[in-house]
């Protein structure tokens, strides 16, 4: 099922970020082995894979939390070492983590500007508040006030804050780790709109997702990881859900197809909205 990772997604776009031969081992466990990945400006790359496939490890390599054991990272035609989150931020790689990494004791504005305050010696709270409202209105965020601690917000509201924060530094690459996993229907749509807006603004977006409809809705390219290895890169237009699921599970005869056959022979592509092993999005997420 292995396919060469050689799709050039669109003519005229150039690669912003390329990974070659990235490996990461934790003791005896090879979490990532020989990963290649390319993403271009104005492209949404969906990164899919079963639990334990190494998606989150790859995100941590990109964001400077873990240093890769081997391999090279090329960012805007220059080979770089992402040694810390601060370096990643300076380069222009912004990451929204699955656990969001927000400080619950700080309020929304303080969280948005954490580590990148305007005028750090005499905080310009007015400018930060104005910019925060701008950003959050742009994302159609439903926050009654920004001066409450993050602890008071619902999961969806926190997700919005985390995404808004990633956009502050005007990044070239935005990495979203399961951005819609905890969101309600409307907020999921908002996040997907936002992902498209990022692409239209020329950002490169890497989105980890378990949700096939979300992947099909916004992604240009799907890269599949399986057990820490590349298992195919497909342009979304030309690939069926069966192929993606087969690449994820490693076989055309898998638990998803068998389940589909049992329940009346419908094609898995139309029946299963969620990739096997993925977290089913919890239903509603209304703040009130």
């Amino acid at each position: 099922m292995r396919q060469p990772a050689a799709e050039a997604p669109e003519a005229g776009t150039r690669g912003v970020l390329s990974l070659r031969g990235i490996s990461k081992t934790f003791g005896a466990v090879a979490a990532l082995a020989d990963i290649d990945l390319d993403v271009s400006a104005g492209e949404v790359l969906a990164l899919v894979g079963d639990n334990g496939a190494g998606k989150s490890t790859l995100v941590k390599v990109l964001s400077g939390v873990h240093a890769p054991t081997a391999g090279t990272i090329t960012f805007q035609d220059e080979q770089v070492t992402i040694s810390s989150p601060a370096v990643a931020q300076r380069l222009g790689i912004a990451t929204v983590y699955q656990d969001l990494a927000l400080c619950e004791n700080l309020n929304v504005i303080e969280n948005l500007f954490l580590g990148q305050e305007i005028r750090p010696t005499r905080l310009n709270s007015v400018a930060m508040e104005v910019r925060s409202w701008e950003l959050l209105r742009q994302l159609s965020a439903k926050l009654p006030t920004l001066r409450i601690p993050i602890a008071s917000l619902s999961g969806g509201q926190r997700q919005t804050v985390a995404i808004a924060r990633s956009l502050l530094g005007d990044p070239k690459v935005v990495v979203l780790d399961e951005p819609t996993a905890a969101l309600g229907v409307a907020q999921t749509a908002e996040v997907l709109n936002l992902v498209e807006r990022l692409r239209d603004n020329g950002h490169a977006v890497i989105m980890i997702s378990h949700s096939m409809p979300d992947v099909r809705a916004v992604a240009d390219t799907v890269a599949v990881l399986r057990l820490g290895r590349n298992n195919g890169v497909f342009p979304v237009r030309d690939v069926s859900n069966e192929d993606i699921i087969a690449a994820i599970t490693g076989a055309t005869d898998n638990v998803v197809t068998r389940r589909a056959e049992r329940s009346g022979g419908a094609a898995p592509g139309t029946k299963s909205d969620t990739v096997p092993g993925g977290d089913t999005p919890p239903g509603e997420d209304d703040p009130s």
Binding site: A86, C103, L114, G115
Partner: peptide, 16 residues
């Protein structure tokens, strides 16, 4: 305050 609230979040926000 950030370090006291969530040290991992602070680290990932680029704080030394």
């Amino acid at each position: 305050y950030a370090v006291g609230g969530n040290v991992e979040a602070a680290r990932r926000a680029g704080i030394n």
